[in-house]
Amino acid sequence: MTDTHSDYRLSQLDQLEAESIHIFREVAAEFEKPVLMFSGGKDSIVMLRLAEKAFYPAKIPFPVLQVDTGLDFPEVLATRDNWVNRLGVNLVVASIDDAIANGVVVDDGKTSRNRLQIGTLLNAIEENGFTAAFGGGRRDEEKARAKERVYSHRDEFGQWDPKNQRPELWSLYNGRLHAGEHMRIFPISNWTELDIWDYIGREGIEIPSIYFSHQRRVFERDGMLMSETPLNPTRPGEVIEERTVRFRTCGDITLTGCVESTASTIDEIIDEISVATLTERGATRGDDRFSEAAMEDRKKEGYF
């Protein structure tokens, strides 16, 4: 048995955990067919951990959905498989390549895979009849997310209407839907990047190795360090060199940059981000850089 809390205090991280677990249980109780959207990144891994805790010792009562961009880091897929196997959850993979082959989305050669994820994801939600999809979005990540509800309603087209959100009061979540609509659920809305890392450290959670310092052959593009990969050929003038790097986010390998870092433990990563001067998305995500409202636009269309 654990210690008695003689002063009845809960640390803020314990409060966040309790809130997230409450959200998972609420959704499992009220929605017919929830699914957890899993990217393999640290946020979605923390979500899986919270879902594990919410239903323990029962198995997580919903499947995990991953959009296979064909451009995922192999280390991320390996971690995903470890988690899925350990927890014994069902994994549903929605492949962008299949979606292109089936005409669900159109690859015009100009649209990034990140954009094609939207159609692929919405199609997977519709095909499987999922009514609630957990996402690992955090409100501290980006200005548009700061205004999003924990239960974020999507219409029949999967669209988010930021000006017409349902008010969300106390811890009373409204999960009412019409046929064809679904709800995006953000159980870690109130967590910050630092909370995520502290929690990973405290819980001893397995995350993809690319988050830790390693040697990698990289080149510089638009001020970001990108991985050498046949999926992302270098352009004239781009020089490949080996550097000591780590990733702050896990996304599409052609768009996700890394930072020079020697941080090889959770504590070192926490020290590093405590003094970081750039947001994790601003520093290393090409997909968020296209415009100041890039995230807002993708969210309206149905992005995570």
Partner: peptide, 18 residues
């Protein structure tokens, strides 16, 4: 937060900050 807010210089909705 939202583009329409920036354009109109008003705040539309509850925003959460940390």
């Amino acid at each position: 937060g939202l583009r329409s807010e920036r354009e109109q210089g008003i705040t539309i909705d509850v925003a959460y900050r940390y």
